[in-house]
Structures are given as structure tokens and as C-alpha cells.
Computed example of a mutant assay.
Amino acid sequence: MRTMNDLATLLDASLGSLVIEAEALLNIKQAPVRKLTNRQKRQ
């Protein structure tokens, strides 16, 4: 939290808005990553 507060201060933003923006970025829907099975890796 101290680091987040330092970042907010450097960016001239409130800590709350920085947390909200970070959460929004984490919630962006991305295409699911498909894991390869051992059989697929050998092909």
C-alpha cells in the first residue's frame, strides 16, 4: 500500500482512483489462454 500511495503521489492522483483504475485493467476480458496437453506439445 505504501508503494501504491507513492505512485499515486507521483502521478498526482488519489490512491482510491489509482486502485479503481488498476482493478478495471485487471477485469478487462481477455481471450482465454489454452493450455497444451503433453500430447499436443509432442505433435
Rank of each mutant, 00 (worst) to 15 (best):
R42E: 13
G16S: 03
M1Q: 13
I20G: 10
Q40S: 08
M4D: 15
S17L: 01
A31N: 15
M4S: 13
L18S: 05
L26K: 02
L18A: 03
M1A: 09
L10P: 05
L26H: 09
S17R: 01
Q30I: 11
L7T: 02
K41P: 11
R42K: 03
T37W: 01
Q43K: 04
T9F: 02
L36V: 01
L15H: 10
R2G: 09
T9Q: 03
R34W: 11
S17H: 10
G16E: 05
L15S: 11
N27E: 14
D12E: 13
A13W: 03
Q30A: 13
Q43P: 05
L36H: 07
L36E: 13
R39L: 06
T9V: 00
R42V: 04
K35T: 13
P32G: 14
K41R: 06
D6S: 10
M4Q: 15
R42H: 04
T3Q: 15
K41G: 07
L10I: 00
A13N: 14
T37D: 14
L11T: 06
N38E: 15
N38V: 08
T3S: 10
R34P: 09
L10S: 09
N27P: 07
A31W: 15
R39K: 03
L10R: 03
Q30L: 12
V33R: 14
A8N: 03
L18P: 06
R39S: 12
I28W: 08
L10N: 09
K29I: 07
A13F: 01
K29S: 08
A31F: 15
K35V: 12
R34K: 11
T9K: 03
R2L: 06
R2K: 07
R2I: 05
L7R: 04
A22S: 08
S17F: 04
P32Y: 13
R2W: 07
D12F: 01
L26A: 09
A22V: 00
L25A: 11
S17W: 01
I20W: 02
A13D: 15
